[in-house]
Nucleic acid binder design. Structure first.
Length: 205
DNA sequence: AATAACCGGCGGG
DNA sequence: CCCGCCGGTTATT
């Protein structure tokens, strides 16, 4: 192939659980992308968009409960506001160093809290705008919780799956926290706000 | 390789 | 509300 870098195939699996379609891209035991959608085709398209050009996706629809049951169910549990162990290795080799830095910081935001684009930028570098760019292209939605990033006025803000879905995800993640907190990352403070602080989040009663 | 256009934001008036 | 700026990424030349 003319001395160029060869292309590799990567397996893309989709599976439906309780009305939600989940998708994962896996190669040699490592996860390259995850997604969810309410339509199978959309889930496949979202996964494909996340993959680097040189990876040729091969799509499988899995109904059998074998290799990746645990992975799909972890995604489904996060979707439902739970906090499962996630022991699969994420492969971020195809991301820029800035994307990796932002996503790794974001993984420090625990369920029940949100942070802001600006605060994430202060910790990870770049600007709030740049953080927004990273969020918009997050290859691991749910696993890397980009739904936990909101504008600094604590409105819900935007979301690739629609802001109503973002609102619902956050409402289900409520842990009853009532005070802001922060997490120290490399000497800088990442702001954490209870999900209750977000404007328009339904209170459970 | 260089430049422009595009945003899931912010902050000041 | 408006506006200038933000800075990484992608599209265009």
């Amino acid at each position: 192939m003319r001395g160029g870098i060869s292309t590799f195939s990567i397996d893309v699996y989709v599976q439906e659980i309780e009305g939600v379609w989940y998708g994962v891209a896996i190669r040699q035991g490592e996860v390259y992308a995850t997604t969810f959608s309410f339509e199978m085709e959309d889930a496949i398209q979202r996964i494909k968009r996340s993959l680097p050009k040189r990876l040729k996706p091969i799509v499988w629809r899995t109904t059998d409960l074998q290799a990746y049951t645990e992975l799909f169910h972890a995604l489904h549990r996060i979707f439902n506001g739970e906090n499962p162990e996630f022991q699969f290795k994420l492969n971020m080799d195809h991301l820029t160093s800035y994307q990796k830095r932002v996503l790794l910081c974001l993984m420090e935001v625990p369920k029940g809290y949100v942070t802001t684009y600006g605060s994430l930028a202060k910790v990870a570098g770049g600007s709030a705008r740049a953080v927004g760019n990273v969020m918009a292209r997050n290859p691991f939605p749910l696993v890397v919780p980009c739904h936990r990033v909101v504008p600094h006025d604590l409105t819900v803000g935007n979301f690739g799956h629609g802001r109503e879905v973002k609102r619902e995800l956050l409402a289900r993640e409520d842990e009853g926290f009532t005070r802001p907190a922060y997490k120290e990352i490399e000497g800088r403070k990442l702001a954490l706000f209870p999900v209750k602080f977000i404007k328009g989040i339904k209170q459970p009663h």
